[in-house]
Simulated assay, not measured.
Amino acid sequence: MRDVLVFAFAVSAACCLGIGFVLQQNAAQRAPMSDFLSLRLLVDLVRMPRWLAGIGMMVCGMGLGAIALGQGEVSLVEPLLATNLLFAMALSRWQTRQPLGRTGWGGLWLLAGGVAAFIVAGRPHGGDTVTDPLRHWLIIGVMVGGALAMAAVSKRVRMSVEAPLLGVAAGLLYGVQDALTRVSGERLSEGGWTTFFLSWQPYGVLVLGVTALVFVQSAFETAPLRLSLPALTAAQPLAGIACGVGFLGDRLDTSPGALAWEAAGLVAIVIGIVLIGRHPAMPSGSSEFDRVRDLQPH
């Protein structure tokens, strides 16, 4: 019963996130380029009703995801959250009236099959949380440091490259945020509100969330959704699983056969995400506007 609830909350979260991302990109592509990678971008976007609707959907998704993370392992919830791209695809297809075709159906089945293969083969389950603080900070440092480095590099490359870089950077931060959300929930349930507010993890969740939001909106602002959302969707579960197994005590089946299926599942997830993200149904904004932006240096 517990796993059924985790599945229901995680998939509902994915639905809200996917719809929210599409609405946010529709609005962010109209923001001025002078706001790139700046908090001013959020100030300008907050005046757009469609963006606010997208943020509302994303907040609902994060809330449902937090409930799923509180009930299940990160390595179980993260692959399910990756299905947000299916819901983004459904909304985009409804907007554009584009048929799925072989690419769309192939991506859909690879993503769904990859999630199923990883969960069935890995059988994620809880274990003892790693208490070594060095291991915690090493994993978090690699993820956050890598994300910040990608954001810094994105300012020096073509816009067709910077959107995927920012998507990966945001995905890494969201993966770490999900792990810290799980820890924050444990602090609250074990020690109450005093322990919760005296812990650093809730504030880490807030800082990571705002930083990732700026990265995501900047990516949405500079390029079509098909360039940024697949990168974000692929990076988040990989980062979350790394944190779950690395320091949250999540356990996966490590027999040779299971490891092979887990690896195949993760590869299928990434390939499916890329195929879906590059499908013509995914919103591309104004093609002329995008071509001009791609030719212009920062």
Rank of each mutant, 00 (worst) to 15 (best):
145 G>S: 10
188 L>A: 09
96 T>N: 08
59 V>F: 10
100 L>A: 13
124 P>L: 06
151 A>G: 04
226 R>M: 12
261 W>V: 03
149 A>D: 02
229 L>C: 09
227 L>R: 10
198 L>W: 06
251 R>C: 05
227 L>S: 07
85 L>E: 05
192 G>A: 14
171 G>P: 06
103 T>H: 12
203 Y>H: 06
277 G>P: 05
296 Q>A: 12
282 M>E: 03
49 P>N: 11
103 T>M: 15
118 F>N: 02
17 L>M: 04
218 S>N: 09
247 F>S: 07
94 W>E: 08
237 P>S: 08
201 Q>F: 13
53 A>R: 12
167 G>C: 10
216 V>E: 10
115 V>C: 01
115 V>F: 02
122 G>W: 00
81 L>E: 00
275 L>Y: 04
199 S>Q: 04
236 Q>V: 07
87 F>K: 02
116 A>V: 14
130 V>T: 12
279 H>N: 08
255 S>R: 13
256 P>W: 06
189 S>W: 08
197 F>Q: 11
118 F>A: 14
74 V>T: 09
88 A>G: 14
125 H>A: 13
181 T>C: 01
141 G>W: 07
37 L>N: 12
199 S>H: 10
136 H>N: 12
127 G>H: 12
9 F>Y: 05
113 G>Q: 07
247 F>H: 03
50 R>P: 07
216 V>R: 00
258 A>S: 11
116 A>H: 08
88 A>T: 09
42 L>Y: 00
130 V>R: 10
112 A>F: 11
180 L>T: 01
73 E>A: 13
15 C>G: 06
283 P>R: 14
188 L>K: 07
232 L>Q: 04
274 V>W: 15
89 M>K: 00
74 V>G: 08
260 A>I: 10
17 L>S: 05
183 V>H: 10
230 P>I: 10
46 V>S: 14
123 R>P: 00
60 C>E: 06
69 L>M: 12
248 L>A: 03
228 S>L: 12
52 L>P: 02
214 V>N: 02
209 G>C: 09
